[in-house]
């Protein structure tokens, strides 16, 4: 695979003595791929995006686009020369221009007629051609978002950066817009990088996800692989509810407080395991193994098509997700059993 964008040991701190906001970050974005940078607010993901766009300077490290260095301590390609499109969280449409002029804004080197034709073409692509003469503030949030996208697609940039692009849409619109935008980007053959704190958004929108915490990257990979095989406790917990269980590994099994667990890989010695609630199963206290530890159900959360139980064993809480048919009630005594191998963290 050929990487379009690559970051090498990129570090940024705003004040000389403060902790770096972006700390020795490395990753690559491949051509045609949609890449998501996911992390809690304040983790440095937006600063990373602004470094790539050219609105901040790195303190050390290097950013390359198509193999050419665009940002390092000594090199700084101005934002306007980078051919990197940017979609802001608040869309930043020019309020003094109508929709078509907004979209055609980046096509400044072309003759007027060609500009408007190309602008219209892109507007049609996002399905807003009939709004060409409207002012941005006359559009709904979802429409503004598509205009902003069209504006950054129009000059055919090498890469499009999206900064929390769906966070201003209400929940109902968010899901459908996400799907539309993904299809638009894929149809246009664009390479895109999304920055978000919403894990569902990152997992469903991106081909590959990188998780960031305290300025550093924790793990990079395909959404499913990240969910199923997290490498750190932070990633495991950030991507969804999980049970973190310490254990003593011997080969492909480990002894834990809940008994013997199968492991997803070979390991030796002390390990931390992550087991998702849906990978645990409850068995009635009297069934199953005789000497297994018993747990008491302390909480039951009904969510329609499934249920989440909180089970207490020797003062520790464990979460179990079951389907709607599960008969247990609060106060019942149960045994827990893993139906999938435990994931060894840090392995």
């Amino acid at each position: 695979m050929n990487s379009l964008l690559s970051l090498h040991n990129v570090t940024k701190n705003f004040a000389p003595l403060s902790a770096p906001v972006v700390d020795d970050v490395n990753f690559e974005v491949n051509a045609g791929e949609i890449f998501a940078l996911l992390g809690p607010s304040g983790c440095g993901k937006t600063t990373t995006l602004r470094l790539i766009a050219g609105f901040e300077r790195v303190n050390s490290g290097e950013i390359r686009l198509e193999g050419k260095c665009i940002e390092s301590q000594s090199i700084h390609a101005p934002p306007e020369t980078r051919e990197i499109g940017l979609v802001f969280q608040n869309y930043a449409l020019f309020p003094h221009l109508n929709v078509l002029d907004n979209v055609a804004f980046g096509l400044k080197r072309l003759p007027q007629k060609v500009r408007l034709d190309r602008g219209l073409e892109v507007l049609e692509m996002v399905g807003l051609a009939e709004f060409r003469d409207r002012r941005p503030h006359d559009l709904s949030g979802g429409e503004q978002q598509r205009v902003a996208l069209a504006r950054s697609i129009a000059p055919s940039p090498k890469l499009i950066l999206l900064d929390e692009p769906f966070s201003n849409l209400d929940a109902g619109l968010r899901q459908s817009t996400r799907k539309e935008v993904r299809e638009l980007l894929k149809d246009a053959g664009m390479t895109a990088m999304l920055v978000t704190h919403d894990r569902e958004e990152a997992l469903s929108f991106a081909d590959r996800v990188a998780i960031m915490e305290n300025g550093g990257l924790e793990q990079t990979g395909a959404p499913e692989a990240m969910y199923n095989r997290p490498k750190t406790p932070f990633v495991a917990e950030f991507l969804g509810k999980t049970n973190l269980i310490p254990g003593d590994a011997r080969g492909d099994c480990a002894e834990t407080r809940l008994g013997r667990f199968k492991l997803d890989c070979h390991a030796q010695g002390k390990v931390m395991l992550s087991i998702r609630p849906e990978h645990l199963e409850m068995i009635h206290a009297t069934a199953g193994e005789k000497n297994a530890k018993l747990g008491k159900i302390v909480e039951r959360e009904f969510k329609g098509h499934d249920l989440t139980y909180r089970v207490q064993i020797e003062g520790e809480d464990y979460f179990v997700q079951t389907d709607y048919r599960c008969p247990y009630q609060i106060g019942d005594w149960v045994q827990l059993k893993a139906v999938e191998p435990g994931v060894v963290l840090g392995g």
Binding site: G85, G106, P157
Partner: peptide
């Protein structure tokens, strides 16, 4: 003026002085 407006224009290929002319001046009107 929202800084994102000017940054959008820069990322669309406008130099600082043209951003001033095409984006900032209209906002200052």
């Amino acid at each position: 003026v929202d800084p994102a407006l000017e940054e959008s224009a820069r990322s669309l290929g406008y130099r600082r002085r043209w951003v001033f002319y095409y984006v900032l001046i209209p906002q200052l009107r």
